[in-house]
């Protein structure tokens, strides 16, 4: 087992309740849940790999492919929708040449949607990595993306 996943596992008890928190920690560390991580978790919690896939695929948060270097999340909550969030997403899909949920070929950006970042008063909102940008426009977004390698 690779070192980091062992350290993650050892922080949790071996109860089924810990499955989701473990998956969350693994994703925080690696950015996604690899087949190997699932194997490790399965042994540790004594839960079948199938069950782990069943549970993790139920939740929107978990991803199973390697993410891009930067994550771009467009908010499509209601407040952002009525203020043009969907147009921002369409623009990005076109500009980056990927669909929502995919990663650009050069692995620079991963594009995702999110159901509300809680900054609805400043909609539309886009999150790039950890930073949230408010009152976004197509043009500001295009400019902003240039700052990322």
């Amino acid at each position: 087992m690779p070192e980091p996943i062992r350290t993650i596992l050892e922080k949790h008890s071996r109860e089924p309740d810990e499955l989701i928190p473990i998956l969350q920690d693994v994703q925080k560390e690696y950015g996604y849940i690899s087949a190997e991580s699932v194997k490790g978790i399965s042994k540790y919690l004594r839960i079948s790999e199938n069950t782990i896939y069943g549970v993790s695929s139920f939740y929107a948060q978990f991803r199973f492919t390697e993410p891009g270097r930067h994550s771009v999340k467009v908010c499509l909550g209601t407040a952002c929708h009525v203020r043009g969030g969907a147009t921002l997403l369409e623009m990005l899909e076109r500009g980056l040449g990927v669909h929502c949920g995919e990663t650009t070929e050069d692995k620079r950006f991963g594009l995702e949607r999110v159901a509300c970042l809680g900054c609805c008063a400043l909609s539309p909102v886009v999150q790039i990595d950890k930073e949230i940008f408010s009152r976004m426009t197509v043009n500001r977004l295009t400019e902003q993306l240039k700052e990322y390698e």
Partner: peptide, 25 residues
Amino acid sequence: IKEGAGAFVCGEETALIGSIEGKRG
């Protein structure tokens, strides 16, 4: 503290409990 994993239905009481127990919500 338990962090949710992005499923609206988990706001419903029994689904939320399922999710805390490590199941599909």
